[in-house]
Structures are given as structure tokens and as C-alpha cells.
């Protein structure tokens, strides 16, 4: 207990490191998380170096096939893999899982909400406005609480939706509402002439939006999108309210262990540093993307 007298005690982080990374996931099965993430990072890394055509396939694989493989690998239950319930998932790996799923899902949902809010069909428009204003108007912590505690009460007896899935949906919809408003800002910034030029060439609503409007609007709001994504990653610790412990949650838990009392500072510094690295990397990536996509000026 040298830490009490002076200097930081990083032994705390060292001893608990495994829990900070994997939560309560059984030690013997942790290779599954490792391989799932290695595959992810490998593919993402490779996509930067391969030809644009191959890159397209990798991205499609990452968006539509990888999530199934990754989830199956981690949750198990088939192919001779031992089933690990989501309650045992935790630590940094859970931070990544929650963030990644929410990021990927909230983007298209937000995009359609943004288009919906500007639709000329009143039913679509008012539904979108209502949805956005509802989710933007409530704190995330209440949404999470509702999703975990209240929502099951409305389900018929015997049906069960996994807590993690409920939380994922809640975070996704919550962030999608913010994303929608960011994207709407981009849509509104485009000159009317772009819509007219697209229409005059015979493009219908969807072609006009996917080929002309959205590529430009999304490029304009990359800083806003990055903002929302960063906020999302940093919102993930809130899932502690439903008993899911990602990195910050595990630190919280570890510091209450009687053997390790008084080690909160080291734990939080460690968690803070990890979050900072993740967020800084995302922020740099968004800046690079902005530069790469800029065609207005050389």
C-alpha cells in the first residue's frame, strides 16, 4: 500500500488489466475476443493499403458480414464454442463493441431521419420531427434505464430481448437523433442549384440524394459527424446504470474492492488515457478524411 504514502501505484492497473480489457469474460475463452478484434483491426488496416476495388469488398464485408461473425465468435453457443452471456462481457472490449455497433447503425438511421425531416410528405416529415425531438429531449441515462428496466415490462411473458441488444438499440436511436440534425445542417447548406441540376438531368428523389446531395452534404458536416461519434464513444460508460461494465465501469468496480481501496486515481487516469487515445485517433482520422475529400481547392 505504498500508494497511500506517495506516488502512483500502477500495480493496480497491472493486476486488474485483464478485467479492464475483458470484463468478467472467462479467461480461457478470451482468445475469442482477441481473434475477433485482431480480425477487425487487420481488415481495417488492410483496407488502407489495398486497391480501391478490393477496399470496397472489405468495407462491405466489415459492415454486413463481420458483425455476425464477430458477435457469434464472442457470444458463442454454436460451433463447439462455449456460450458466454452478455452480462459477463465488459471492459475495453465492451466499449469497442457498443461504440462500433452504435456508430455503424446510428449513421444510416440518422441519414434517413434527416431526409425524412425535409420530406415533402407530411406523414414522413412529422414522424421524423417527432422522433428526433423526442430522443433529443431526454437524457441518455433515462433512455438506458427505460430500455433495461421499463421496456421488458411491456413485452409479453416469455419473450426476452438481451440486455445488451436493448442498450445498443437505445444508444443507436439516441445518437441517430443527433446525427440527423447534423446531417440536416449539411443538406441545408447545399445550394438549391445542385438539386435543380440533378432534377434537370432526369434524376428522381433517391438518385438525386445518393449521387449528388448526400455525398456533398456529408462531406460538409464531417466535423459535426466526428463530434457526434466522439460523444457517442464517451457516452458508453453510462451503460453502467443497467449493470453493464465497460472500461470505466470496471475501474469503478475495481476501486471498491476492499484489497484495492484508494486506487481510484490510477484507474481513472488509465481509463481517461485510453478514451483519449481512441477519441484522438478518431478526430485525426476525420481531419484526414476532410482533406482527402476536398475537391474545391487544391
Amino acid at each position: 500500500m505504498i500508494a497511500l504514502v506517495g506516488g502512483a501505484c500502477w500495480v493496480f492497473v497491472k493486476v486488474w488489466f485483464n478485467r479492464f480489457m475483458y470484463g468478467m469474460y472467462p479467461d480461457a475463452e478470451q482468445w475469442r475476443i482477441n481473434s475477433a478484434f485482431l480480425l477487425l483491426f487487420g481488415l481495417v488496416g488492410a483496407s488502407f493499403f489495398v486497391s480501391p476495388k478490393l477496399k470496397k469488398y472489405i468495407i462491405v464485408f466489415l459492415l454486413f458480414i463481420y458483425p455476425i461473425i464477430g458477435l457469434k465468435l464472442i457470444s458463442g453457443g454454436d460451433f463447439g464454442l462455449e456460450f458466454v452471456e452478455t452480462g459477463a462481457w465488459g471492459g475495453l472490449s465492451l466499449t469497442f463493441i457498443v461504440s462500433a455497433f452504435a456508430l455503424i447503425l446510428c449513421f444510416p438511421v440518422g441519414m434517413f431521419l434527416a431526409l425524412g425531416r425535409r420530406s415533402s410528405l407530411p406523414a414522413v416529415r412529422y414522424t421524423s420531427i417527432g422522433f428526433i425531438e423526442l430522443w433529443r429531449g431526454v437524457p441518455l441515462i433515462t433512455v438506458l434505464f427505460m430500455s433495461a428496466v421499463m421496456f421488458p415490462m411491456f413485452l409479453p411473458d416469455g419473450t426476452y430481448v438481451d440486455k445488451l441488444i436493448r442498450v445498443l438499440i437505445a444508444i443507436t436511436l439516441f445518437e441517430a437523433a443527433y446525427m440527423a440534425e447534423v446531417i440536416r445542417g449539411g443538406l441545408q447548406a447545399l445550394p438549391k442549384g445542385q438539386y435543380e441540376a440533378a432534377k434537370s438531368l432526369g434524376m428522381g428523389y433517391w438518385r438525386m440524394h445518393f449521387l449528388i446531395i448526400l455525398p456533398q452534404a456529408l462531406k460538409l458536416v464531417i466535423p459535426g459527424i466526428a463530434n457526434t461519434f466522439l460523444a457517442l464513444v464517451k457516452d458508453t460508460p453510462l451503460i453502467f446504470v443497467v449493470g453493464l461494465l465497460e472500461l470505466a465501469g470496471m475501474v469503478n468496480l475495481a476501486k471498491t474492492n476492499p484489497k484495492w481501496l484508494g486506487m481510484a486515481m490510477e484507474g481513472y487516469v488509465f481509463a481517461g488515457l485510453v478514451f483519449w487515445i481512441i477519441c484522438y485517433a478518431m478526430s485525426r482520422y476525420s481531419q484526414n478524411l476532410e482533406k482527402k475529400l476536398s475537391t474545391e481547392r487544391q
Binding site: 435543380e196 441540376a197 449528388i212 462531406k219
Partner: peptide
């Protein structure tokens, strides 16, 4: 053809 060209800048 428009007064402001309206080319697609991207």
C-alpha cells in the same frame, strides 16, 4: 444550362 453552372463540385 443554368446561370450558375451548377456543376457537381464533388
Amino acid at each position: 444550362v443554368f446561370q450558375q453552372f451548377n456543376l457537381f463540385p464533388h
